[in-house]
Design a protein around this nucleic acid. Structure first.
Lengths: 196, 196, 196, 196
DNA sequence: AATGAATGAGACTTCATTCAT
DNA sequence: TATGAATGAAGTCTCATTCAT
C-alpha cells in the first residue's frame, strides 16, 4: 500500500525546505562556488542523488533561495498596492527592511554577496530588474511629494544610505547595532528629503 | 650580451603587473571562481607555468590585487598623517574615493564582490582590521569636533551613506552618475553631521 | 469480491505488455542507453517500483523484446517444418520479412541497432546461433536444388542482399519504399540463384 | 628551455592519435555508451584530464573517428572527381570498400553500430547527408548508362546488396570470407544492372 | 499490487598545479 | 626564464535499483 498523494507531497515539501535551509547556510558561510552539492546534501542529511531529485541543479537551489528572498523584500513595500507611497509606508519599508535582516541574517548575507557577483547578477537583473525600477519610480514620486527640490539627486542619496546601512548591518553587526542604525537611518532619510 | 640585473628586475616587474591586470579584468568580469588560471595566463600572453613562476597560487594573485587596492583606499585618508582629520581632509577623502572608482571601476567591482564573501572577508579582517579601526576612531573624533551630539550614531550613518553610495556607483553607474552622487553625498555628510 | 486467479493473471499480462511496448518505443526512438527506467515507467503509466516488479532489470526488458522479435522472424521460415525449403516457402519468407517490417518498424529499428552492438550480439549468438545455422543449411540445400553452381557463394550473396535490403528499408524508408524493394529483391534473388 | 613549437605539435599529434585509437577499439568492442572516458584514458595510458586536453568531450572523440572514416569511404569514389562514374570507377569503389574493411575492421564495426543508433545517426545525417545524396545520383546516372530499364529499382537493389555484404563481412567474417564475397558481389552487381 | 522517496556508484568534465624539457 | 603537456582530485549530475509504506 503506497503512501497517499498527500503524504508524499508533505514529505517532498519538508525535504525540499531542509535542503534549501542547508544550502542557504553553506552558501552564506562559504560562498556559492565554494560550496559543493556534496556538502549541501551532507548537511541536509540526504544523499546527493536526492538533492537532485528536488532541484534541477545547484544553480536552481540558489535561484529558489533568491526568489524567496526577493519576494519578501518588497512585500513590505507599497503595502496597499495602490502604486503610491505614503509617508507611513515609506517608513514602514525602511524599518521592516532592518527587521527582515534581524530575522534572517544568513539569507541577507548570501543575498548581498550574490548581487555583487557579476556572473550571477546579470540573470537576476533580467528577472527582477523591472520590479526594481517600478519601486524607484514610486520613491521618486514620494520624494517629490515631500517637497524635495532635487528629487533625483535625493533619491540617489537616500537609496545609497539605505543600501549602505543594510549592508553594514549585515556584514558587521557587532559594530553597527541593528536597532540603533534603524532609527538613525529612518530619521536621516526624512531629514535629507525635507527641504530646509 | 646579457641584460643587467636591473633590466631583468624591470622585466619581471612588468610581467607580473601584466598578469595582475589580466587577472583583475577577468575576475571582475566573470568572478574569481569562474576564471581559470588558463584564461588569466592566456590573456596576459604568458604560459601557465610562467604565471606560477610569479605567483604561488591563484589565490595569491587575488590577495595581491586586494592588497594593492586596500592600500590605495587609505592613502587618501589623513593626508598629513598626523592622526587628526581636518574638514578638508575628510571632504578630500570622500571625493577621492569616488574619483578612485572612476579611474578603475573594474577593480572596485571585484573588490566589492570579494569583501562580501565571508570566506574571504575574514582573512581580510585579520590583515586590515586594525587599520580600519584606526580610521573609524579618527572619523569619530572628527565628527565630535564638528559638533555632533551623537557621534557614534552619526558615524554609523555617515559611513553607511559613503559605503552605500560607492557601492551603487560601482554596480549601477548608469543609474547613479558618479560626479552628481559625489557632490550630493559630500553635502549630505556635512548636513548630517552638523547640528541643526 | 476478489478477482479470480485468472483475472489477476490477465491483468499482469497486460501490464507487462504495456511496459514492453513503452520500452520498445523509447529504446527505438532514443536508444537503449539513453532511455531511463523512469521514462519507461512514465510512458507506461506505472511506477518505477512496479516496473521492477515485472522485470528484473532494464536489461531484462530488452532481452524480452529481442527474444520476442527473434522468434517472430523465423516463424515464417520453413512453414511446414519438414526441414526442406520449397520455392514457395523461400519466396514467402522473403516477402514476409518485408511485411513484418511494415507492421512494426519501431521494433526492427531497435533490433538492428541492437545486433550491431558487439556486447549484446555475443550473448544473442549464444542463445540463437544454433537456429540461425540450421536456417543457413536449409538455404544452402535450397540453392543447390535450384541449380546453383556455387551454392556457398550464392548463399552469401543472397543473404547479403536480403539483410541489406531489410536494413535500408528500416533505416531510410523514405528512399527505399517497402513494397517496391520487396518485389525487386525477390526477383533478384531468383535471378542470382538461377544459372544463366 | 621549453620544447620547440614543432616538438609540441608532434607530441600532441601522437598522443591524440593514441587516444583516438584506444577509443575506437573500446567503442567498437563495447559500444559508445558503455565505454567510459576513464577506460579510454586508461587504455591510452594517459590521465582522464589529458584526454580532455585533446578532445572537448567524449562525443567529440566519436565525431572525429566518424569523420575520418567517412572521408575515407568516399575517397575511393569517383576517382577523377568529374562527377561521372565509369565502369572501372564503380568496380574500384566496390572492391575498395571491401579492402577498406579488411584493413580496419574495428572501425567499420563501430561505424555500422553507430549509424544504426538513432540518437547518434541524426546528427550524422545532417553533416554527411548531402554528400551521400550526390553519390546516389551519380550511381543512378551510371546505372542508366549501363542500360538498366529500371534504374531506380536497380539502384535500390545494388546498394542494398553492397551495404548488406559489407555488413555481413564486418559482423561475421568467419562465415563470410572477405575476398570471396568481394568477387561475388562485384559480379552480381554487374549481372543485376545489365539487361538480360 | 503499487508508489515514489531514497540511495550510491559511477559518468562526464574542469582546473589548479606540477614538471620535464 | 619559459613552455605547455600531464596529472588527479574534486565537482556536477544521472540513473538503475531498493525499500518502507
Amino acid at each position: 500500500m503506497p503512501r497517499s498523494q498527500k503524504q508524499y507531497k508533505e514529505i517532498r515539501k519538508q525535504k525540499k525546505q531542509l535542503i534549501l535551509d542547508s544550502a542557504l547556510e553553506l552558501f552564506a558561510e562559504n560562498g556559492f562556488h565554494s560550496t559543493s552539492m556534496s556538502k549541501v546534501a551532507q548537511k541536509a542529511g540526504v544523499s546527493k542523488g536526492l538533492a537532485y531529485n528536488y532541484f534541477e541543479s545547484k544553480q536552481d537551489i540558489l535561484d529558489e533561495i533568491i526568489k524567496t528572498g526577493f519576494d519578501s523584500i518588497y512585500s513590505n513595500f507599497d503595502l496597499n498596492h495602490d502604486g503610491i507611497l505614503t509617508r507611513e509606508e515609506f517608513e514602514h519599508f525602511i524599518r521592516n527592511s532592518f527587521k527582515a535582516i534581524g530575522k534572517n541574517r544568513k539569507f541577507w548575507k548570501l543575498y548581498s554577496a550574490i548581487i555583487m557577483q557579476s556572473d550571477i547578477a546579470e540573470s537576476m537583473m533580467e528577472k527582477y530588474g523591472d520590479r526594481s525600477q517600478i519601486i524607484m519610480q514610486m520613491l521618486n514620486q514620494f520624494i517629490k511629494t515631500m517637497g524635495s527640490k532635487d528629487p533625483e539627486g535625493d533619491l540617489m542619496v537616500i537609496s545609497s544610505l539605505v543600501k549602505g546601512s543594510l549592508l553594514v548591518v549585515i556584514s558587521a553587526p557587532e559594530f553597527f547595532p541593528l536597532k540603533q542604525l534603524e532609527d538613525k537611518v529612518t530619521e536621516a532619510c526624512f531629514r535629507l528629503i525635507t527641504t530646509k
